[in-house]
């Protein structure tokens, strides 16, 4: 760690995409509304802070005991003042609630013509699926969305709770197993925006990142054409990354959450229950569908089942791809 990285506040102020001091870049239609409410509350807070703390500091100085013989006021309270400082803050708080409620309702109701994308969260990466175009994207490829058009994400998790959070769009929703939760947004401009997982989900919770790539509608249509799953053979390699296999099984021999698949096809493997099994088509198919059945020794049964998420043609494509890993 160089000194500069240790004490960056000596360095020039860090580069930040244009956002205000408090809030990140405003990259979706919600961002302005949320920021407006934020700064509305922020400035009223600052006002009340200086009122209260100012009064406190002034009283502490003005009524400081100097001689120790001062006499103090017999004031015990004043109903009118107490009523005032209950009612006025009460009304202000109600206004906070009202503005927040309005925008929140807009954020919860996706418009009908929104582009529907399925998001699946699993222990420590995301995968996206465009049902209208039959495209699949892995976490490292990111979520590609058109600019200026409403996009709805229908999300579900296959293992534990996760949460899909795009700070620049001001949207976040927990991704719950066995249930669909939805968020929608309309991106503005173009560029990449960071996505975080914000519901604690284990060891690599802080690595479960991906990016949203916002493109011009024209460029987006062009991207769809390139990646559309034409009727040709399903490409095993792209499936291997889009379905998140690459996240846990390396293809270069290194041990990740799961065993590496390099050169494994046709060899024997010892299982946790001590028996050995030959790595053939059936073992791979079964391990994809029911991962917990035959777990390789030295590994925890962490792999989520892909039952119902991959059809036979895609499983065969994956098996062929694994065969090529020498």
């Amino acid at each position: 760690m160089t000194l500069a990285s240790l004490l960056p506040f000596l360095a020039a102020s860090e580069a930040r995409a244009e956002g205000t001091f408090w809030m990140p870049e405003q990259a979706s239609t919600f961002a302005e509304e949320v920021d407006w409410i934020y700064y509305f509350i922020y400035w009223i807070d600052v006002l009340f802070f200086f009122l209260v703390i100012g009064a406190m500091v002034y009283f502490a100085i003005r009524y400081r005991a100097k001689t120790g013989k001062e006499r103090t006021s017999p004031l015990k309270g004043s109903h009118s003042l107490e009523l005032a400082w209950s009612a006025i803050p009460g009304l202000i708080l109600l206004s906070f609630f009202w503005f927040g409620f309005q925008t929140y309702m807009d954020m919860q109701v996706p418009p009908k013509d929104a582009l529907n994308i399925r998001v699946t969260g699993q222990k420590w990466n995301w995968s996206f699926e465009y049902p209208d175009y039959g495209i699949r994207q892995g976490g490292d490829q990111g979520l590609v969305v058109p600019s200026g058009q409403p996009v709805m994400l229908t999300m579900s998790s296959v293992d534990v709770l996760h949460s899909f959070y795009i700070p620049d769009f001001r949207v976040k929703k927990d991704v719950v197993p066995n249930r669909y939760s939805t968020i929608w947004f309309e991106a503005k401009g173009t560029g990449d925006h960071q996505v975080f997982c914000t519901e604690y989900c284990g060891d690599d919770h802080s690595r479960m990142l991906t990016k949203v790539h916002v493109m011009e509608p024209a460029k987006f249509r062009e991207w769809v054409r390139d990646n559309k799953a034409d009727d040709g053979p399903v490409d095993g390699q792209s499936l291997f990354s889009s379905m998140g296999c690459i996240g846990c099984h390396s293809i270069d021999g290194s041990k990740l959450v799961g065993p590496s698949l390099k050169g494994k096809y046709g060899t024997d493997e010892q299982l946790t229950d001590g028996s050995t099994v030959a790595i053939d088509d059936n073992y791979i198919r079964e391990s994809i569908m029911v991962p917990g059945a035959k777990v390789v020794a030295g590994y925890a049964p962490q792999m989520p089942p892909y039952q119902g998420r991959l059809n036979d043609e895609e499983v065969n494509a994956l098996i062929d791809y694994i065969k090529t890993l020498k």
């Binding site: 802070f49 906070f96 503005f99 927040g100 929140y104 914000t198």
Partner: peptide, 19 residues
């Protein structure tokens, strides 16, 4: 107390939750 108000507002909490 004052910063708690941001978290009680529905729209702003969506951005602020779990940060």
């Amino acid at each position: 107390g004052l910063t708690g108000l941001f978290l009680a507002v529905l729209a702003v909490d969506v951005h602020m939750h779990d940060t």
